[in-house]
């Protein structure tokens, strides 16, 4: 299947909400790592409305981390602009950083310090002191559910406890925009659930959240909007419902006896209106211009070749299928 990465500009999935005063406004952004011979981000423009819970998706090497690094002022854009709440980094570096809380993918905590000491350290490094610091540390411990374990060293915590604390640390200075890079990697379902509940609460309270994850099911559950990057370009942006509706209208899944899959695929690839055929034996997935109109002809042609599908389904089932349809199924191993 051909990925849509070469699409020059993303097609909005739904009429975008009014972006008169976006939380994050990225315009025509290009970014390249030192010594790299090509851009990791190529001409991305993205507006994230205030109060959005945006899932930033993309296969490995799509440019997600590069985009987040530039957003969090860890990396300098080669061209283009980024504004957070109307402020650019160059205008006021400290004030810009105050607007964003970054939860890195790795557990960015001091393992020999306790949870409380970690929160106090990062709170102070964020510029907090006195009563405000104590209040935010108490909030952080409550957020992470670690009030009773606050005096234990972080190195003794479970993976889930460390992940929750990692996230709580990001919230200490109470920034309006949260950037969460794979915040639930390697944790148990209970911790994941707790993190999701907390993030929903923060979002309801007005926080803008940009969330990256390879767990598309959790993005589908948690986020209301997505942006999909591939090959350094933004290939889709909008509400999740609109994305699913778009692929629901194009996808047909057929299940066969495994011995018939290849022959069926050969037949279907020659048919008019079939844009793409993907084999995942014993299933075939087709992308067509109009599945309901094409389906009778497909079944008739297969019957003519004495191939009978065991089951037929129309429409994408979930975000993962929509994501694969957008980005293709080719492996994207990072170097």
């Amino acid at each position: 299947m051909a990925a849509l990465s070469s699409t020059p500009a993303p097609e909005p999935l739904a009429p975008p909400p009014a972006q008169t005063d976006p939380a994050v406004d990225i315009q025509d952004l290009f970014g390249r790592y030192r010594r790299a011979d090509r851009d990791s981000i190529e001409g991305v423009s993205l507006a994230v409305r205030k109060g959005a819970l945006l899932g930033l998706l993309g296969p490995n090497g799509a440019g997600k981390t590069t985009l987040l690094n530039m957003l969090c002022a860890l990396m300098r854009p080669r061209a283009g602009t980024i504004a957070v709440h109307g402020l650019r980094f160059a205008q006021a570096p400290d004030a810009y950083k105050d607007l964003i809380g970054l939860a890195p993918q790795s557990l960015a905590l001091y393992p020999r310090l306790t949870a409380r000491e970690n929160l106090e350290t990062f709170g102070r490094l964020s510029g907090l002191s006195g009563v405000r610091l104590r209040e935010r540390v108490a909030f952080g411990l409550e957020f992470a559910g670690l009030q009773d374990l606050s005096h234990r060293r972080v190195e003794t915590y479970s993976g889930g406890q460390q992940r929750r604390l990692n996230l709580a640390t990001t919230l200490l200075p109470d920034p309006p925009v949260l950037v969460l890079d794979e915040p639930t990697v390697g944790i148990d379902p209970q911790s994941r659930h707790a993190i999701h509940e907390n993030l929903r609460a923060l979002n309801r309270a007005g926080k803008t959240i940009i969330y990256t994850s390879h767990y598309l099911d959790e993005v589908e559950q948690l986020c209301d909007e997505i942006a999909v990057l591939d090959g350094g370009r933004l290939i889709a942006q909008g509400a999740i419902g609109a994305l699913l509706a778009r692929f629901t209208g194009k996808r047909i899944e057929l299940r066969f006896d495994p011995r018939s899959v290849e022959a069926a695929a050969d037949i279907l690839r020659t048919m008019a209106g079939v844009e793409d055929v993907t084999i995942a034996s014993p299933q075939l997935a087709l992308v067509t211009d109009d599945p309901y109109r094409r389906l009778p002809a497909i079944l008739k042609r297969l019957a003519h070749a004495r191939i009978r599908p065991l089951s037929v389904a129309v429409g994408a089932r979930d975000l993962e299928q929509a994501f694969l349809a957008l980005t293709g199924t080719q492996l994207r191993d990072e170097p």
């Binding site: 890195p104 557990l107 001091y110």
Partner: peptide, 13 residues
């Protein structure tokens, strides 16, 4: 290695 430097870089310190 633990990514702490990334967090520190993102802070206004």
């Amino acid at each position: 290695q633990q990514g702490i430097i990334t967090r520190l870089r993102a802070l206004p310190v």
